[in-house]
Design a protein around this nucleic acid. Sequence first.
DNA 1: AATGAATGAGCGTTCATTCAT
DNA 2: TATGAATGAACGCTCATTCAT
Lengths: 200, 200, 200, 200
Amino acid sequence: MSKRTINKREKRAAILKAAAEAFKGRRYDEVKLDEIARNAGVGKGTLYLYFENKEELFVALACDGATGVAARIRAIADSAGSYRQRLFSFGREFSEFAGQRHGLIRLLEQSPSPTLTEKMHTQHAEVKKAVLHLFEQGIKEGALRDDLPLTTMECMLIGALFFRVRMLERTNTRVEVESILNFFWNAAAVENQPQAHSDA
Amino acid sequence: MSKRTINKREKRAAILKAAAEAFKGRRYDEVKLDEIARNAGVGKGTLYLYFENKEELFVALACDGATGVAARIRAIADSAGSYRQRLFSFGREFSEFAGQRHGLIRLLEQSPSPTLTEKMHTQHAEVKKAVLHLFEQGIKEGALRDDLPLTTMECMLIGALFFRVRMLERTNTRVEVESILNFFWNAAAVENQPQAHSDA
Amino acid sequence: MSKRTINKREKRAAILKAAAEAFKGRRYDEVKLDEIARNAGVGKGTLYLYFENKEELFVALACDGATGVAARIRAIADSAGSYRQRLFSFGREFSEFAGQRHGLIRLLEQSPSPTLTEKMHTQHAEVKKAVLHLFEQGIKEGALRDDLPLTTMECMLIGALFFRVRMLERTNTRVEVESILNFFWNAAAVENQPQAHSDA
Amino acid sequence: MSKRTINKREKRAAILKAAAEAFKGRRYDEVKLDEIARNAGVGKGTLYLYFENKEELFVALACDGATGVAARIRAIADSAGSYRQRLFSFGREFSEFAGQRHGLIRLLEQSPSPTLTEKMHTQHAEVKKAVLHLFEQGIKEGALRDDLPLTTMECMLIGALFFRVRMLERTNTRVEVESILNFFWNAAAVENQPQAHSDA
DNA sequence: AATGAATGAGCGTTCATTCAT
DNA sequence: TATGAATGAACGCTCATTCAT
């Protein structure tokens, strides 16, 4: 890797860092490129050497690293240890990811340009697949109940982990990841014996 | 209520309806007041007779009805029937609310002006309190376990219900509300006997 | 014509007047919309109520009135009087047109957007056709020689009239329109007896 | 002339060639230095080693060669042969010059900075003087009529030759140079006997 | 009360110019 | 000498907001 490349990477990273800070808890239109440039320590024009325009910078910000997460989740799923341990590892890993990305994901959920939305979805679909893979593995290993829809499990666990970040950010309410994982485990693990109910 | 007032209400409602449509899946800055006025069938200047400015219109959009929901949740909590039935009623009611409001909530989670955020939080705090009230009641009645933090329960249930809407909207994946409620009930109801675990 | 319309016309005219002044002897990029707006006594945004963008304003400036000229030329061609008189009337009329429009035509001869160039060409083609019509009439009436290509006559007369304006503007050299017309008449009128030459 | 100098000249020529191509039929502001540099096969910064700035490059483009033309016109004027032959030689020479420079002249007619305009005018004044010299010579030799203002002749001949190029470029209408020269000769040569007219 | 023409602050973006290498 | 990454001044354009009617 040439010196030039290193500098390029560094500068790109500096811009993204400044952008991440700027977008934290702010609306897309509230964030000015002037601010990002200033905080990144570069000229405004320089932004355009690294990103096509504001939206591309924005998308890069949200996509950067998402791929890494999917890989890490798979690594956890395939690591040694009891399934419960792996699930909890996943929970902690995902929480960290959610904590870092939640604000941006919220922003991205509003449509920028169609093409960019797609780009982002591709990235996040990877994460989703990795999560489903984890659940399937749990069922195959006999650790997770096989009578629960995968999507329901995803909805419960991922939804709770995301909501946890939201509570933390918005109302400063701290919910323990362990607590959520235990709750999930209570309902989804085979070792617990859930009774069937007859709804009225 | 005078005819005048009725007209005012109707026009206000028309504006909010047009705004709701406009904000659906779009960024705050992508929505133009021109568009809202046109779709509401009023002049652009008229918007300012009903709302202070764009942000207030926006906040009104998200807050309108939130109070109603809090009241309805309380009504459900205090209605007759088994706790399980009441919890499930709540779930269905809240899902509908979330379905209608999710897009807006996402928008609101980006901070407009501080004062407006606060205003909105007051509204949503009502809903939150009603939810916690429901849980407390369940514990008091002996239907819900008392060893789970309220915030964890909130996180699991509300998080899942919100995430369900998100999945529906973004990936067209349908998750049954009943399925989520059953999952929650499995873990949180007293009638199920959770075993303590020993972590390795 | 409603009061509204009158105001619109007036304002549009004021803008075009300011623009004409601004573009006089300046490059397209040297003319700022700020300046035009200020001199027209309107806000910058107002320009966009009357013109799509800078280029459209620019084209409107050059096209406005061109249609009128074509009509006036035809009127002269079809008026009473000897052909010589009509030709001289045309020359004076066209000179005035050229004097007013020359600067703009020069600008327009550099391609703005393709669609706009076309628009302008349509306008100017009208003038060109009117000129050729005048020549054809002269030949039919037996006033002009029929052994000269129409395009050559156009080239001589129109070219000279345009160049006259150029000289006036750039080097402050005054050339009489009458002098040019006499020169043209000398070579093109039937009453003069040109001898054929044999080129070596 | 050292090898170094030759290289300099070559590179300078390459830049001017690329610039000529770029400015052909485009507005000053539509031409980017990036493009010129790329097409000239040099770096962007290199342009500034050969030209002060964009405007100077632009002016150099238009002036380069103009001096040569003035010299060539004088040479033709002072060459052997009948005046008619010399006049026609001049016409052909000037047409070629006009064809090459016309687009640029149009550009230059919009004022860059005052100092640059002056610089350019100095150059073109040379050409103008050479033309007038040619006419004076014709009169002195008794070939051209002495009752026509020099400026009128200039206006007719030069105006027509420029307009011819314009017609060629814009409307693809071909007008023969010979035809124009004959027309001019008809009106301006002594050998033809123009009658005085009595205007009505 | 209702309108929509008018406004101008403010933004994203471009590109001539510079300068470290 | 040659380069091209970096810069920031400057501009076209938008759109929330106002106000005369």
